[in-house]
Write a protein that binds this DNA or RNA. Structure first.
Length: 470
DNA sequence: CTATGGCACGGATT
DNA sequence: AATCCGTGCCATAG
């Protein structure tokens, strides 16, 4: 049904050669971040490849004059009876659709590794001696994109011939510099530093640091009652601390924002503004059709360098060979890119039709599907779907960001069902009782599995759910 | 005796 | 071939 929308002859689905095949697969595997690097690499190494200043719609090929979406396609698709619209957009065009409140060291949600270390160094430079500056620089070059670094104090101290205390002083200085907490080993340490810093300015809940330090795991799982039990305080005290933490501390100091984007699996965080695919409602009205936008990492399309093509004709025979080769590589690369976009596009159209209810109405309506089923419907190999899904990030109409694999989460639906049951319960229900309730609704799973799902959602066992706030 | 969590097995999925 | 996920069994706590 959706094939009708895309009647673009130059987008052949079947790869021609093995080289084509290999490259397409490689590209498909990449998220936009990697893809951008790959494109840059090709641009740099291949003179036959060029960036086109004129923006073309990747679907209909028409020129996009202004605005964010191709009017041609919009109109054409609106006239058709499709339940959704599809676009291929560039980052620049997409900006208004992404959350744009990034601060100075952010562009597209990633840290500019040039400026963050410099920024910090400038702050702490005055209070450090020359040797200490070297140590600071060395630490700062090692920080990762989250601003974390595992400082090997001993090694640094012997390498730069400074006392261990100096290295520690430097580390402390970095941690207390502006994005407070950078230079820590992990999120836990970063939050401790922030708590420490805040303590100087105002009062903080008394158990804050103890809980971060000793009950970190439970904290992530939101098992407040359990923590309260262990520390022998009321659970409202613990909740107070938890609230304070979410409101005032930032586990990823080098990132600008953190909110509901947290996945239950403790280290699974997704960055804002990094989406490869954005789903939204037309004109932001939930009544309207869903708009699918696939992002290209570059702000323009790639084309063959016309001058280079021209030059080929006038060249000597020996260079001709090499130039010919460059041109071939360039056009192959472009083809593969189109292929990648096209595959993702087709897949998204199918996914959105299947999971429309989930997208509009939430977790309860996610249908459990597998990549293999999608592959069958699209007539591609399942590994192709796997690649297309992997390392892609999708932004839902409600602006939440998830890995594309949410569409294939087999248990999400049941998990929310369980959450619902527990929220409505009067008396805490044991896992076994929940199981029976689920069976009445036509869902049959093992008792053990309920326990697992509960755990994933961070819900404590029945005997700890005695008093409910709310 | 009941409720729950740890470990590990086997089948499905990637 | 590697990984993920549901499940059964068993130990432990209450």
């Amino acid at each position: 049904m959706y094939q009708k929308i895309n009647t673009k002859p130059h987008l052949n689905t079947k790869p021609q050669t093995t080289a084509h095949l290999a490259q397409t697969m490689a590209l498909l595997n990449m998220g936009n971040g990697e893809l951008e690097e790959e494109i840059q690499k090709n641009l740099a190494s291949n003179p036959a490849l060029e960036v086109d200043e004129v923006k073309h719609c990747a679907i209909c090929g028409g020129v996009i004059l202004e605005g964010t979406r191709c009017r041609n396609c919009l109109n054409k698709q609106l006239q058709g009876e499709s339940q959704f619209l599809t676009f291929v957009s560039t980052r620049e065009q997409a900006k208004p659709f992404l959350d744009g409140d990034n601060d100075q060291y952010f562009e597209d949600g990633t840290v500019d590794t040039q400026t963050l270390p410099e920024y910090i160094l400038r702050q702490i430079g005055v209070e450090l001696g020359d040797n200490e500056k070297l140590v600071a620089a060395s630490i700062l070059t090692q920080i990762d994109e989250d601003g974390f670094v595992d400082v090997d104090v001993l090694e640094l101290s012997s390498y730069y011939h400074v006392p261990i205390s100096s290295v520690e002083k430097v580390k402390k200085a970095i941690q207390h510099a502006d994005p407070i907490g950078v230079g820590s080993k992990d999120a836990q340490e970063a939050m401790l530093v922030q708590a420490d810093e805040l303590k100087r300015i105002r009062d903080i809940p008394e158990l804050t640091e103890k809980i971060i330090a000793e009950n970190y795991r439970q904290l992530l799982k939101k098992q407040y009652q359990e923590i309260a039990r262990e520390l022998d305080v009321t659970s409202s005290k613990v909740e107070e601390v938890a609230l304070f933490i979410t409101e005032n501390l930032n586990p990823f100091p080098a990132r600008s924002s953190w909110g509901d984007i947290r996945d239950q699996n403790k280290d699974d965080f997704v960055r804002l503004g990094e989406a490869d695919i954005v789903l939204s409602y037309l004109d932001n009205d939930p009544q309207n059709v869903i708009v699918i936008e696939i992002f290209q990492p570059m702000n323009s399309n790639l084309i063959l360098n016309a001058a280079y093509q021209q030059a080929l004709k006038d060249s000597e025979k020996e260079i001709k060979m090499k130039m010919r080769e460059d041109l071939d590589r360039a056009s192959l690369f472009i083809k593969c890119l189109q292929q990648r976009t096209n595959t993702i596009l087709r897949m998204m159209q199918l996914l959105v039709t299947i999971q429309e209810k989930y997208i509009r109405e939430g977790d309860r309506y996610l249908k459990p599907i597998t990549r293999a089923q999608i592959a069958k419907k699209l007539n591609v190999h399942e590994s192709t779907v796997s690649r297309a899904v992997s390392s892609k990030i999708v932004q839902m109409p409600n602006r939440k960001v998830y890995p594309l694999s949410v569409f294939f989460d087999r248990s999400l639906q049941i998990r929310t069902e369980i959450k619902g049951i527990i929220e409505e319960e009067k008396e805490p229900l044991s896992d076994l009782q929940i199981m029976k309730k689920l069976e009445k609704r036509g869902i049959s799973i093992a008792r053990r599995t309920i326990a697992k799902y509960r755990d994933m959602e961070g819900i404590p066992p029945a005997y700890q759910r005695k008093e409910r706030s709310s």
